[in-house]
Amino acid sequence: MAILEQTVAHYNHWVMIFLMISGLYIVVARGNMVKKLVGLGLFQTSVYLLYISPGKILGGTPPILGEGLGPYSNPLPHVLILTAIVVGVATLALGLALVVRINESFGTIEEDEIFAEEDDT
């Protein structure tokens, strides 16, 4: 029973941790640059979850004020993550632009092949 209780209380944290280590694994283990950026995105979304999920109150409503509503969930993490998402896509675009340039000058987006080519020249 205690295990079940812990699971219900911390399931969001555990899924968040799983997403985070998957993102970490992709970034470290995979040599493909686009795949690395996808992994970075996974890590980023897990951080969104880390911020948003403690702000929820069970039985609460979205923080838009009105008569007879409440309790409201915490609006502060929403604000922080809202801007983080848009900044995230801007930085993703920057990373993809770098990938495109790397592909143009090396002819590949695999890390190992780029290193091999660097050693040759």
Binding site: G41, T45, Y48, I52, S53, G55, K56, I57, G60, T61, P62, P63, I64, S73, P77, H78, I81, L82, I85, V86, G88, V89, L92, A93
Partner: peptide, 18 residues
């Protein structure tokens, strides 16, 4: 999780533009 603004942004940014 009651974050309607964030959901809207994530749907348009994450699934659309990126």
């Amino acid at each position: 999780l009651d974050a309607v603004d964030v959901a809207m942004t994530e749907a348009s940014v994450g699934a659309g533009v990126s």
